[in-house]
Design a protein around this nucleic acid. Structure first.
Lengths: 333, 333
DNA sequence: ACGGCTTCTGAAAGCGCTTTCAGATAGCCA
DNA sequence: TGGCTATCTGAAAGCGCTTTCAGAAGCCGT
């Protein structure tokens, strides 16, 4: 097709390429002619040919555990922001909290020839690391910190511990956790560990019956809290893996005649759109997904373009205080 | 790289290609040798070269107005489902309810060489249609019906009218609408028109002060309802463009001391996750996003593979009755 | 007007696959 | 075993760009 443009403009394909890629050093009249011819013909370069020739695909891949999760959508959209500015496309895939699936999806993207890869978390299939290394493209992990790999995220254990400490400062002593699936999910796991350690540091413990793992979603939150109540003395406060889970737990609490925060303090994760509008408004750990995405995008672009980068970028989560947390009814409880 | 595999297996690249693409007619021993060599070398085919050679990119593009909207995320994820099964990748982009931006994004995808394109709605930049035609790839529109283009969707006007009729059957006579942005958005526009016509058919009218257009989100819903109350006699029922908007409106109603559904019936759109969990549970028009996505994916794949398809697939929306709607306090009101 | 520069330009060689086409090999029957 | 067909296989020609390299054209000063 570039041939057609060349013919029409009376130049060679080399010149067409030079003009269309904004190279200097083409005489104005020829440049004009090429522009016009391309316009007239509605010329659209063949991406595959260009990619083959330049060995640049101009796309980066991203594999997230769940594309329907607000935090991940936001990170994708902010990564895309940055990529687009640099002329790159984002190709996203869903791994569904499963290392094997993640490997499959990522391989798929690698085969496509992406120039960079964004992953979530610090646990991945060993083969995946091998393939990425072999392909030679830059990779960045997000939402958690890593000892060895490039990453943009925060210390999940520390931020969850902060929430636990806040609850303990309020006087809570029986604190529960409802997390999403922890298998193949270092973020969820780290949060629970962080909470358990914070409790331990003050001589408390996370009772097994107050440590619940459920699948995500509002329904999961309801089930989770129901399950928690089934196990002996109820907690006076809970920390949930997402705001959806917190929402579900609050609904279940109310259905059982427990008032929030009177009988139960609730903390969520993510600061979703609806969190401030729940009744009561939800205290939550705000994860700066957009900032994480921007940083991750910048990181990848920089490495693709051979610019220096810092390996680890920390974008700390933040405890947003709202009305779903309060001191327990009886402080000694 | 295929050369390396060929050398290692003691065959030609032609044979390597045949084996790796599952062609019959390669002797078992050579096939084995190729497989092993590919495995050993961790061979990953170069997608660009393959695309250039086959003139198939094995990817389809999708441009949605807002990637953070639940309905669109769901449709993307279900389209991807189908594509993946057929060996295709989904490349998604965000258009932000703007025809120019949509054109830009879609062109970007077209340049990438996608083999098919999914759009939302029936209003697009005229140049976009021209470019799609020139590129010769199949395109399918979603979420609304079209007179001329391939589409998978439903009659937005009719489904909204159904909601209006339901409210009128309950006895409501002052019905309001809070929609998202209607510019460049045939779905939103059609819904309002459908409601206005349904009202007109029963001798009522959609008062201008009860016809509110806001930006999406819970905050938008609150603002929208506040605005509506500012304009004279309040409605006894409202139909909202999304469940988020409905949520926002309900919050504002409660803040004003109005009870739902006692003083105000509320209907949303989408049947989001949280809709059944609101207080009261939200009556809403369920849009079968997943089914739309599956059908759209199947449609594109079929056309890419040269199989016959029906141009128009209707996947009707459904009115889900919950507790946020009831007869008005005084039926004559 | 001409030599010596600099600036432009086009021919051609890839990029790494797929696929055709013709030749090599294997299989079969007489 | 020889001849003929049916299977396999590899050489080579693209796919549509980019980019190198050498030659053409333009510019300048004398």
């Amino acid at each position: 097709m570039a041939r057609d443009v060349a013919r029409r403009a009376g130049v060679s394909t080399a010149t067409v390429s030079r003009v269309l890629n904004g190279f200097a050093g083409v005489r104005a009249d020829k440049r004009e002619a090429v522009m016009r011819a391309a316009q007239d013909l509605g010329f659209v370069a063949n991406g595959a040919a260009r990619a083959l020739s330049t060995r640049r695909f101009m796309a980066v891949g991203a594999v997230v555990p769940n594309i329907e999760n607000e935090a991940f959508v936001r990170v994708l959209s902010s990564v895309q922001d940055r990529l687009r500015q640099a002329g790159y496309t984002l190709v996203a895939a869903n791994a569904g909290y499963d290392l094997e699936d993640e490997l499959r999806e990522a391989t798929f993207l690698l085969e496509r020839g992406v120039d960079g890869l964004m992953l979530v978390g610090d646990i991945h299939h060993p083969d995946l690391y091998a393939r990425i290394a072999r392909s030679g493209i830059p990779m960045v992990q997000t939402f958690s910190l890593s000892r060895v790999h490039s990453c943009v995220g925060f210390d999940n254990a520390a931020s969850a511990a902060r929430a636990a400490n806040y609850l303990m400062d309020l006087g809570h002593r029986r604190i529960g956790v409802i997390s999403g699936l922890r298998k193949d999910n270092d973020r969820g796991g780290a949060r629970v560990i962080g909470i358990a350690q914070a409790l331990a540091a003050r001589g408390l413990r996370l009772a097994p019956e107050h440590d619940i793992e459920i699948s995500y979603g509002i329904g999961g939150g309801r089930d989770g809290f129901r399950q928690m109540l089934a196990g002996g003395l109820p907690p006076t406060a809970i920390i949930c893996g997402t705001d959806q889970i917190a929402f579900g737990a609050m609904i279940e609490a109310r259905a059982r005649g427990l008032s929030v925060p009177g009988d139960l303090s609730v903390i969520g994760h993510n600061d979703s759109d609806f969190a401030p509008f729940l009744d009561p408004p939800l205290t939550t750990i705000r994860i700066h997904s957009a900032e994480i995405g921007h940083a991750a995008g910048d990181h990848l672009i920089a490495r693709i373009q051979g610019r220096p980068v810092v390996r680890l970028t920390e974008i700390d989560a933040e405890l947003i205080l709202r009305a779903s947390t309060a001191p327990p009814r009886r402080a000694a409880d």
